[in-house]
Amino acid sequence: MQRVNMIMAESPGLITICLLGYLLSAECTVFLDHENANKILNRPKRYNSGKLEEFVQGNLERECMEEKCSFEEAREVFENTERTTEFWKQYVDGDQCESNPCLNGGSCKDDINSYECWCPFGFEGKNCELDVTCNIKNGRCEQFCKNSADNKVVCSCTEGYRLAENQKSCEPAVPFPCGRVSVSQTSKLTRAETVFPDVDYVNSTEAETILDNITQSTQSFNDFTRVVGGEDAKPGQFPWQVVLNGKVDAFCGGSIVNEKWIVTAAHCVETGVKITVVAGEHNIEETEHTEQKRNVIRIIPHHNYNAAINKYNHDIALLELDEPLVLNSYVTPICIADKEYTNIFLKFGSGYVSGWGRVFHKGRSALVLQYLRVPLVDRATCLRSTKFTIYNNMFCAGFHEGGRDSCQGDSGGPHVTEVEGTSFLTGIISWGEECAMKGKYGIYTKVSRYVNWIKEKTKLT
């Protein structure tokens, strides 16, 4: 034993070699072989497995989906700052455009905790909710729209109204504003409101030439003092309507412009014939205590009207009353817009006519005020429907199939267009061939041609 100890002390290297040989010859039971080890760690190889990531292109799944990435790591994937920024906006807080917040056709661009709407022409605001041009839906104005110097929408209202708090709607500024039905039992019968379409306001006024200088022999019209197929109006439903009495009662109609003036057809009036105007009328054979009678003290036909040349060209006249009318729910003026808007309103496509005229061709006159909704007829169809001249200051309205029309005794009465609950004068009943005849239409004086003249002559002093 002493000898062994001496050998170990003198030859430590020998001992180490012996131990190493023993270990190498022993069977290893701690580690699995290569094949079995792979069965336990069965993990798919990654895209760049075996390579240094710093030297390969980034992978979106590896960089940002398996674990949260930084902007720089995302930049490695896209290799483009702009594309990385677009991805980053949604990656950080989701897609803010998912709810489609942009209105009126706006395009949404996502941002971090926010979004941006790219608005089409005519709109602005956070969600493109603000109209900035009158060309689109009248700028959301209830009545009139004008573009300011910086191309912003400025709404306005006709006389007797003021802008509401929203700067879009119009509200009454006087007790009985024009064009409004205020009798409670008839307010439910107000005709369907007309909503502004998209309009090209630059070209809204037709490029028409008034044929002022045409000389033409007097034409022989049949029954051209021209509501057939209409309905009984309720008291106060058309408070701007008046009836004219002269040699015979209810020979023509008219509309209240203001307390002192009536507008009617020029062919209705004769110099030297006494005319009485009755406002607030409903049943011409009954006294309903809503009527107001006034005498006409002055007749002003349009300066281009000449019955000797043509009885229905420039067929418009103004009547001055001896005493002002007292405005109330049964006696209310009709609204008159400017030339541009009167023309736009007419193009809405349908209007209402009213009167006490004959209820059928050569038949009896109506006792109760009649009204009828009539569609506008395109000019080409209008011209083809008659052998008589249709001037540019006239328009056609009615039904091709016949059966409904204005008729004798309705002449001078109103053709009105309702705009968001307020009625505007767009025409004056003038003439036609018979009444409600198939293929024939009622012919009306186009008020847009005469609004400046009306307003100039009827100013209240």
Rank of each mutant, 00 (worst) to 15 (best):
Q408T: 15
E456W: 06
P333K: 04
G230P: 10
S204Q: 05
T445Q: 05
N306L: 05
D110L: 07
W453F: 04
V451G: 03
F399A: 08
I284W: 09
S187M: 12
P172C: 03
V451L: 03
A366E: 15
R226Q: 14
I136W: 08
G230V: 13
G432F: 04
L327E: 03
P120K: 04
L372E: 11
I297L: 11
P175R: 12
F221G: 06
R373L: 06
F78A: 06
V359T: 13
S354F: 07
K188C: 05
K137R: 14
T209A: 11
K362E: 12
A266H: 02
F123E: 00
T215N: 09
Y161A: 02
D95M: 06
G106E: 00
L383T: 15
S350Y: 08
N151Y: 10
K260Q: 05
N59L: 05
P120T: 05
G50L: 09
I112G: 15
E208Y: 14
I316G: 01
S423M: 11
G349S: 07
V277K: 00
N151R: 11
I344E: 11
I17D: 02
P120S: 07
D93E: 07
D315Q: 02
P172W: 03
V419Y: 11
Q90F: 08
L14V: 11
K45P: 12
L346T: 07
E434V: 10
C252Q: 00
E73A: 08
D93K: 06
G427C: 01
V257S: 00
Y352F: 14
H282M: 09
F196K: 13
D232M: 13
G442D: 03
G432N: 13
I297F: 04
E142C: 02
E79W: 11
L211G: 11
G229E: 14
N104C: 00
K362I: 03
G179R: 01
T342F: 00
E67W: 04
E401H: 12
G272D: 09
G50N: 15
G105R: 03
F31R: 11
A26T: 12
E208H: 14
K459D: 15
N80S: 14
M437F: 14
E76S: 10
F176S: 05
E193S: 12
R384T: 13
V416S: 07
E171K: 10
Y201S: 05
F224Y: 14
V359N: 12
Y341I: 06
E66N: 08
K457C: 09
F78G: 15
V269H: 03
I40R: 09
T225W: 11
F31G: 15
L60T: 07
I262F: 02
K247I: 10
G246N: 09
F221M: 09
G94P: 10
K39Q: 09
N147C: 06
P175I: 06
G179M: 00
Y330K: 05
Q408M: 13
P375A: 14
F424R: 00
D212H: 09
V227R: 11
N138P: 05
S184K: 10
E61K: 06
I17R: 02
T290A: 05
G402P: 08
D410A: 08
F144A: 00
I284K: 07
C119P: 01
N213T: 07
C134L: 03
E98N: 12
K457E: 10
I336S: 00
A307R: 12
G351K: 02
V202S: 13
H302S: 03
N283E: 07
I15C: 06
E53R: 05
T218M: 07
G427Q: 00
N36C: 04
E288M: 06
T133H: 12
F360I: 15
Y115D: 00
C141F: 00
V228K: 09
P375K: 14
V359P: 04
E340Q: 13
V183A: 13
N100D: 10
Y441A: 07
L163Q: 03
K168S: 04
R180V: 04
N343A: 07
N452L: 05
N313V: 11
K168Q: 11
G402M: 15
E129F: 01
R191C: 05
T186E: 14
F144G: 01
G355W: 14
F78R: 15
E456K: 08
L52W: 11
G442Y: 05
C145L: 02
L20Q: 02
E433H: 12
V353G: 02
S107E: 14
S70F: 07
G254F: 01
E27C: 05
K455I: 06
I297P: 02
T85C: 04
S354A: 14
V30E: 09
K89N: 13
C335L: 00
T186Q: 14
L425F: 02
K247H: 10
D110I: 05
N166V: 01
E433Q: 14
V92G: 15
W261N: 00
L367W: 12
Y441R: 03
V278F: 04
E320A: 03
G125W: 00
K387G: 08
H415Q: 01
E67S: 07
R364L: 08
Y391A: 13
K109V: 05
V153W: 06
